[in-house]
């Protein structure tokens, strides 16, 4: 039984147009925002496969930048997140590739984000219905499930500790 709650059916509350190409992507961006403790000064973003093909019509770029800026899935400012990014002095660059060798899914992105002395490289995939997955942090493979109403700050804190311990 994959669906467990009435809110898995009625929800999430989100900006359109696609739960997989928009809502799930905001969560990936927000995860990175929490990981580096705020808006990145610079973000290099690679969109793969279906994201690279249809990002413009689905606002996948806006969704990811919105998340990096700390916005939630239902934040109506996401529509204008390119302008918001400029305003907050965030530099970003998008690249487009056919398929991702690290993770086999059509809705995949890898983001390298820098803030202060901290740089992180995160791989995320949006797996449908607003759910997404972080599959890589700094070249280490992980499996972190994100839903749109997750407490991302708490989740990040937990994995931050685990990975730091592993690296020692």
């Amino acid at each position: 039984m994959e669906f467990q709650s009435c809110f898995d059916i009625i929800g999430p509350i989100m900006v359109g147009p696609s739960s997989s190409h928009t809502a799930g992507v905001v969560s990936i961006g927000k995860f990175i925002h929490e990981w580096i403790g705020g808006c990145p000064e610079k973000a290099d973003i690679v969109f793969y496969d279906s994201f690279a093909e249809t990002y413009q019509g689905h606002g996948t770029d806006k969704a990811l930048l919105g998340g990096l800026l700390g916005m939630d899935t239902d934040d109506s400012r996401i529509k204008h997140s390119l302008e918001w990014a400029k305003e907050s002095g965030m530099q970003y660059e998008f690249d487009f590739e056919d398929s991702c060798i690290q993770f086999d899914h059509p809705n995949t992105t890898i983001v390298t984000a820098k803030r202060g002395g901290c740089t992180v490289k995160v791989g995320g995939a949006s797996i449908g219905g607003g759910l997404s997955k972080i599959f890589m942090i700094n070249d280490e493979m992980v499996d972190i499930r994100l839903s749109t109403d997750e407490d991302l700050a708490a989740l990040v804190k937990q994995y931050h500790q685990e990975l730091t311990i592993n690296q020692k």
Binding site: D8, I10, P12, M14, V15, G16, D74, I78, K79, G129
Partner: peptide
């Protein structure tokens, strides 16, 4: 149409069928 314009909607059960 709001959904296509990146407005806020509720997925019921998905955004495409909202």
């Amino acid at each position: 149409e709001s959904n296509a314009r990146m407005g806020v909607i509720v997925a019921t059960p998905t955004a495409g069928a909202a």
